[in-house]
Amino acid sequence: MNKKGVDFRALVYLFTVIFCAILIIVFYLWQGVVAKDASGLIDIASEKVHKDDMLIDLLNYPLDSHKTIGDAVAQGELTKACYKSKDFFKSLYGENFLFVLSFDGDEFCETDESPSKPLKLISYIPTSNDEIKEVNLKI
């Protein structure tokens, strides 16, 4: 038996396996980078959907048996609306949730600190005197 031939063959196999392993690892890492981008966007989408709905959820939140926060805002009862809005955010997102609410350009409800890099949500609301006003929520 030619042992030189066996050693050489084993060496070639070894290098081949290492080469293939490196190729597979590189490919796997490349795929991972692409997948990471995609999963990152999915996370953002989920958070965005949740945050985008906040203003509508807030405006549809009941103030009492006949009225929502949106009704109160539209009718100019901003103090009541602010009080209930604070309740809404506190109960759903905790005490440290930062927000600023404004109606027709005037800020009427905010936390002690303003949110840094805020996401601004806009909604339009009809009022009893046939106007359309803008409600903003910065979170």
Binding site: G5, F8, R9, V12, Y13, F15, T16, V17, F19, C20
Partner: peptide, 11 residues
Amino acid sequence: RKGFDWAFLIA
């Protein structure tokens, strides 16, 4: 070329 055949095939 003994030992090359399979290795090249796999690689």
